[in-house]
Design a protein around this nucleic acid. Structure first.
Lengths: 237, 237
DNA sequence: CTGAGACTTCGGCGCTGGGCGAAGTGTTTG
DNA sequence: CAAACACTTCGCCCAGCGCCGAAGTCTCAG
């Protein structure tokens, strides 16, 4: 029989430790062996074996700089496939408790190359409610040019000609939100405009004061952002 | 850490036998234990264990009718996730040889709920070349109404209002083709109009004589269909 | 009722693979 | 050069799982 070798990918993601590493890597940044070992709760030598396996499966690429090795997902297709899996995978049972404890954790975060978390879902809802975006047939369609006006963003023609919004199932919200090229542009712009900032330490993204104002004024997200003023990223224990 | 349990899905697809079963199930129909055991090359009792596992992972549902149990993928999300994985998974090395031997096998087939195979790819290309479909930002966009005229198909308003075409990476061609709601409509129509037929035995779909004529005249696919006249589905060995 | 067929359960075998401690390699710092 | 550090390799232990033969359950045909 002619078959794609799902099993090779399956082997790679079949282990809980590797799953945790991949979830970490979904943030889009590079991570060192040590960071990923800590995220997975194993020793560095075990993590090393896992990462080698993930590399062999083609999910992860490594780059050596000095005495450090930086690992990241090998491409957007991988992130997209993992997202798709997350849509059908059960959630970690520890999740709900942890989320309560962690508070603001993951309110805003990056999902490989676009925004995710409750705020991203709220943004998508607001864009639809205001007529800037249309949901149909399982996809998001921008109402020509409108979406950019809604965000108050000026974008290059190249992007205007390819404003395709791929839906993405959020891990925590289980709701669709904007991914794809448009999602990437929104994240990029939000970072460039200073609405969001990657904190030096820890996970997630910080909403800056101008970011608060912009999202509240342009999309009416004041209430969704209510608990976030001065939000610092939260660490576990 | 809050994580989706990729590993549960991973465990389920981590085995080559289960991979073969899933590929079989991707056709979209229901299959019995015995059929799937044969497809995977294992005994029925082993297949039974595998299917139980796939069921526990939520990938497959079983329906008991009389003394037979029919298994099928639990939903479109599963098929979509598997497609996405196929895009990043290496192909079975036996594949190329088998494909040559099998000849017409898989020239046209269903991929869960839409068309796949070389002919589906050619259809997509033809629709783009003729201006009925636009590819941008990683998605396909119908040029309003035109695609249906191109296919000579009259479809309900409901579909016209939601003509979203999700791209799908074909297993064999490694090329994008039409999936999503539009893909489902195209497959449904092709079956209803008698252009395609599910053979009683064997895999894939048959292109009927009217189907040949319709695709050649409307989309200029005469050459793509050249080797297929009177095509019967091919069995292995 | 009896036999055949589809499927599942059970038990046992053998292999694979995750885990860590200890030791090794290469790089940066002092 | 020596010490610190990041990472990898090696060797070992043990749990888990794929596989099949044999036996059991359920359903249908005669």
């Amino acid at each position: 029989m002619a078959t794609p070798r799902f099993d090779i990918i399956g082997q790679a993601i079949a282990d809980a430790s590797r799953t945790r590493m991949l979830c970490e890597l979904m943030e889009g940044r590079s991570f060192t062996n040590k960071e990923l070992a800590s995220a997975a709760g194993v020793t560095p030598q075990t993590a090393s074996a896992h990462l080698r396996l993930l590399q062999d499966a083609g999910l992860v690429v490594a780059e050596k700089r000095g005495r450090c090795v930086f690992h990241r997902l090998s491409g957007p297709e991988v992130a997209q496939a993992l997202e798709q899996l997350a849509a059908i995978a059960p959630m970690d049972s520890l999740y709900r408790a942890q989320r309560r404890k962690a508070g603001g954790l993951a309110q805003v975060r990056s999902c490989y190359d676009h925004l995710a978390g409750p705020v991203a879902v709220a943004m998508t809802d607001a864009l639809i409610a205001r007529g800037h975006l249309r949901e149909e047939g399982g996809g998001f369609h921008p109402v020509a040019g409108e979406i950019w006006a809604g965000l108050g963003v000026c974008l290059p023609d190249r992007v205007m000609r390819a404003p395709f919004a791929r839906p993405c199932m959020d891990w925590t919200e289980r709701r669709l939100h904007i991914a794809g090229p448009m999602g990437r542009q929104i994240l990029t712009h939000a970072l460039e405009a200073g609405w969001l900032r990657r904190p030096l330490r820890g996970r997630g993204l910080e909403v800056t004061t101008p970011g608060h104002r912009a999202l509240a004024e342009r999309l009416g997200l004041g209430s969704a952002l209510a608990g976030l003023s001065g939000l610092k990223s939260c660490e576990e224990a």
